[in-house]
Amino acid sequence: SELMNSSKLIRMLEEDGWRLVRVTGSAHHFKHPKKPGLVTVPHPKKDLPIGTVKSIQKSAGL
């Protein structure tokens, strides 16, 4: 199965306009000026399962 580095996923979010608002432990929480909701990324993780990545991307509207 495909894995993604959390840094790469965070870069994709930031390029889309998401900004880090809070860190709780290894959970990084992002908000967007125009899009609704809060997106949480486990970080640092070298090997996020593709299912997790897809669900984060979906929440972020990517």
Rank of each mutant, 00 (worst) to 15 (best):
G17D: 05
K45A: 08
V53F: 03
G17M: 03
P44L: 04
R19E: 12
T40I: 12
R22G: 14
T52S: 06
Q57H: 07
I56T: 02
R22C: 15
V23R: 11
K45Q: 11
G25I: 15
G61Q: 08
L62D: 03
I10T: 02
H43N: 03
I56P: 01
E2L: 07
L62G: 04
K34R: 12
K54R: 13
H29L: 12
G25K: 15
K46G: 10
P42G: 04
G25H: 14
V23T: 08
K8A: 15
T24W: 07
V39T: 04
A27S: 13
T24F: 08
S1Y: 03
V23E: 10
K31R: 12
V21C: 08
H29W: 13
R19P: 00
H28C: 05
K54H: 07
G61F: 03
T52C: 11
L38V: 13
T40R: 13
S55P: 02
M12T: 07
K45S: 08
S1L: 09
T52N: 04
S1Q: 14
A60N: 02
R22P: 01
P44W: 04
L48H: 01
E15W: 06
D47S: 12
E15P: 00
M12K: 06
T40P: 03
E15K: 12
I56K: 01
S55W: 08
I56W: 01
S1R: 06
L3T: 15
R11C: 11
L20S: 06
H43K: 02
S1A: 12
D16R: 03
H28E: 04
R11D: 13
K46D: 15
H29Q: 14
P42S: 05
A60S: 05
V39I: 11
I50D: 15
H43I: 02
G61K: 04
V23N: 06
R22D: 12
S55C: 13
I50V: 14
I10E: 02
H29G: 07
S6I: 03
V39Y: 01
P36K: 11
V23K: 10
V41W: 01
L9A: 04
I50W: 14
M12D: 06
L20M: 07
R22A: 13
S26K: 12
G37A: 05
S1K: 08
Q57Y: 13
P49T: 09
M4R: 05
P49Q: 07
S1D: 15
P36G: 08
S1P: 10
H28D: 02
S6D: 01
P42I: 06
D16F: 05
K45G: 07
K45F: 09
L38R: 08
K34F: 11
R11S: 14
